[in-house]
Design a protein around this nucleic acid. Sequence first.
DNA 1: CACCACCGAATGAACGTTCATAACAAAGAA
DNA 2: TTCTTTGTTATGAACGTTCATTCGGTGGTG
Lengths: 190, 190
Amino acid sequence: MEIIAEKKKAILESTLKLIKENGFHGTPMSLVAKKAGVAAGTIYHYFDSKDTLIMELFEYTQFRLQQAMLKNLREDMDFKEGFFLRWTSRYHFFIQNPDVLFFIEQFVNSPYFPRCPQERNERIQNEIKQFIGIGKEQGVFRDLDQNLMSIMVHSSIITAAKIQIDGKLVLGENEISQLAQMMWDSIRKQ
Amino acid sequence: MEIIAEKKKAILESTLKLIKENGFHGTPMSLVAKKAGVAAGTIYHYFDSKDTLIMELFEYTQFRLQQAMLKNLREDMDFKEGFFLRWTSRYHFFIQNPDVLFFIEQFVNSPYFPRCPQERNERIQNEIKQFIGIGKEQGVFRDLDQNLMSIMVHSSIITAAKIQIDGKLVLGENEISQLAQMMWDSIRKQ
DNA sequence: CACCACCGAATGAACGTTCATAACAAAGAA
DNA sequence: TTCTTTGTTATGAACGTTCATTCGGTGGTG
């Protein structure tokens, strides 16, 4: 991803926050412009339309998520540790960036999502998918499609993060590690 | 839920389908009216506004989901069977009603959802939650918040159904029961 | 008659997008 | 240096369209 012009970034960040609060509906371009501190027309200097703004925003959030992931990885940990680290660091990213979580969830359930090129969608998924693939080869994990297992793990993270952010439940360190343990137990060979 | 007037039902069903295809954005009231075979004004005979139409549609789908659940339950099955039945019958409901699945997913991730009264949201969750509660008392399940466990189970069902409907993976009977098994293993005491 | 479900053209506000214009910088030309 | 040109970035009022909602009217029923 190229270095993003300051105003372009401001537009993306504003859109992110507004969509979290008001949904796709409720965020007119005029509001985006206002919040970003630019004129309405400026948005169209950087983006062809509202649709492409939203599509690019999705890529932007995927990029940020991936960045956050890679930071925490070490090579020298055992397999189970690796799994726990992946689970918890993704979880914490979403906790720290609730607007990203909400935007992604709205996006993937909207008609925008099917219009994205497949490979883009799955890039983020890949790191976990490969990891699970290795575990499968080593006979640690179930003999089940790795796409399936990785998506189940992914969805458990999303779900836990949403509950925490909504404030429906307060998850302490103990609960977090129990959840990671749950998912570990679900995919490992029994 | 009262017996629903025929036209009202037609309006609800049309909205459901249109929202699945076009999202909240893309479904103007005029289209809803056309698809339902009623005049635009008629919608306002049954619903105060587009917002309340969507809110009521959510309740309507929850109702249908609950109906489908209750149909399959028997008292005389053992605990694990009961879990599997719950998991798979919910799964199959979503597979058979993809528009409901997509609508619910869009709805719960939109700003509409937080505006629903809590008890309404959780009514559906309750049956599974109570079931898990019993399992916990009997020492079959983990010692972890039952809300948390039930939501994790719920999200696994949603996720599996979405993958299947998207056609990303084809899940046969074998995969389905493996998934249910996965979730069973995740919440049971190890 | 009164009441009701229903119709659909009309209304007015909201919104995405355009465009004429300006500010500014970098790069020659004199 | 100073002037001119060219390109990029930014502006915000104006436009045309879309859309939720309204309302006067129609036909059927009790």
